[in-house]
């Protein structure tokens, strides 16, 4: 079976790194490159974090390109309350020795899409700024994209406002451009990603795998565990691995439960700006999306452990 060509786009970020590990380890995926966007932290930080991750894993040949440094219509608001000052607090990395490729990020994405034999799957793990600009600039390449799988949104509620999840809230206009593009989208939202959590015992099991990948993932998770010294071994920690759910939904068909929906984004609401409007009844339009409604957490952690074993 041929591997699915994948373009990663993200704002690493702890959970972005876990998604990278899962994607890079999979024999079902062929990661062609990664674009970086500002979101969880500044573009400088997220770029550095992407490169550090690849260096740590010995996968420096995967090209990284820096993209947009702020949302399309709004100033950047970072989530350092979650990810710390560097955007990836926790692990100790050696000094950086690689650099991003020197290319315009839209052209970088377009070249990957154009040169791929099969249609490319775009995995978007942060605000969708890069992908939206790419789609606006390359209308002729839409039919070369298999689908766009993104972490973001929620069918009900939110985590950054009562009705919005951070990635979508950060750049609602970009998400609207992506969701309304006509390209099939898969939304991995909070109904699934909020359940991608580990406890101390599971962090220990991941660490015990003993690969560089497992050390990295365990260190990242420990950052969140350290914030909750009171939690016992079995209590699930506030350390959701949101972004990795995107990869789990691609490489496994029994981990993330998806439902058909018409999906668009609210950009104007007084209280609901950044809301992913999930219409499971199709009363507002044809189904253009699959939306996550649940996650099998045990299966997800198994997929993460598999990835850590593969990436020696």
């Amino acid at each position: 079976m041929s591997r699915i060509p994948v373009l990663l786009d993200g704002d690493p970020g702890h959970d972005d790194v876990m998604a990278m590990v899962m994607a890079l380890a999979s024999d079902k995926l062929d990661v062609k490159g990664m674009t970086v966007v500002a979101g969880n932290s500044t573009l400088a930080n997220t770029s550095t974090n992407a490169l550090r991750t690849l260096e740590w894993l010995g996968l420096e040949h995967i090209p990284v390109c820096t993209g947009a440094d702020h949302p399309i219509m709004r100033p950047l608001q970072i989530a350092d309350s979650v990810h710390g000052k560097s955007g990836l607090d926790g692990p100790n990395f050696p000094p950086l020795h690689t650099k991003p490729v020197e290319k315009n990020f839209v052209d970088f994405m377009a070249d990957i899409v154009r040169e791929s034999e099969q249609k490319v799957t775009i995995v978007c793990m942060g605000p969708q700024t890069n992908v939206a600009i790419f789609l606006l600039a390359n209308p002729d390449l839409k039919d070369r994209i298999e689908r766009i799988v993104f972490m973001g949104g929620a069918a009900y509620g939110g985590n950054w406002s009562p009705a919005a999840e951070f990635n979508i809230w950060e750049d609602a206009e970009a998400a609207k451009i992506v969701c309304d593009s006509g390209i099939p989208v898969v939304m991995c939202g909070l109904e699934a990603t909020n359940y991608a959590r580990v406890n101390r015992r599971e962090i220990g099991e991941i660490r015990a795998i003993g690969t560089r990948a497992s050390t990295l993932v365990a260190d990242l998770l420990q950052f969140f565990a350290d914030k909750r010294p009171d939690a016992d071994d079995e209590q699930k920690l506030e350390a959701p691995m949101h972004d990795a759910v995107t990869i789990a939904s691609i490489i496994s068909d029994d981990c993330v439960e998806l439902r058909d929906a018409h999906l668009t984004i609210e950009t104007d609401g007084s209280y609901t700006q950044g809301c992913t409007v999930c219409d499971f009844r199709g009363i507002t339009g044809d189904f253009n999306a699959k939306v996550s409604v649940n996650l099998d957490c045990d299966r997800f952690i198994e997929l993460m452990k598999d990835a850590c074993r593969r990436l020696k």
Binding site: G157, P162, T264, D268, G269, S270, T272
Partner: peptide, 21 residues
Amino acid sequence: VACETRGLNAGQTVVDFRGHL
């Protein structure tokens, strides 16, 4: 609870279960 009056979700009763507001 607030009520959205604008946009696609006009008429949604937004319940702030997590205290964001």
